[in-house]
């Protein structure tokens, strides 16, 4: 979807991919059931089969960050649509063309 010409679809693609990445981290991180990561009073380290809490912390952070960046991307894409009156990526090539003329910046 990221390769689509329509901006909205690019955005949807990015969001899907972000979620997919998070789920990937979740699933590769040795999920075990019903074994909380508590260290019993007598021991110094965790006994071996334990549920690792760290991947969840990672995913939580990644979700929050993803949320922020995606919100920004949505706002930006809307601004582009307003500016250009068009959401076709093929028409957004003026900054790439060779005889690019000076804008008003």
């Amino acid at each position: 979807m990221i390769l689509r010409r329509s901006l909205v679809k690019v955005l949807l693609g990015l969001i899907f991919l972000g979620n997919a990445g998070n789920i990937l981290i979740f699933s590769v991180a040795r999920i075990t059931k019903g074994i909380p990561p508590f260290i019993p009073g007598s021991a110094d380290t965790l006994a071996d089969p334990y549920a690792d809490p760290l991947p969840q912390a990672l995913i939580l952070t990644a979700i929050v960050i993803g949320f922020g960046t995606q919100a920004f991307a949505i706002a930006l894409f809307k601004k582009v649509y307003k500016n250009q009156g068009d959401d076709d990526l093929d028409k957004l090539r003026s900054t790439d063309s060779m005889d690019y003329k000076e804008g008003n910046n």
Partner: peptide, 28 residues
């Protein structure tokens, strides 16, 4: 400005993608 948002789209999209790859790689 018009140029800025146009350049911005390319910059933002590609960097979101790269961050995604990064976090996936960290996870693996």
């Amino acid at each position: 400005t018009k140029q800025q948002v146009e350049g911005g789209i390319k910059y933002v999209t590609i960097n979101l993608l790269s961050s995604l790859l990064f976090v996936t790689a960290v996870g693996i």
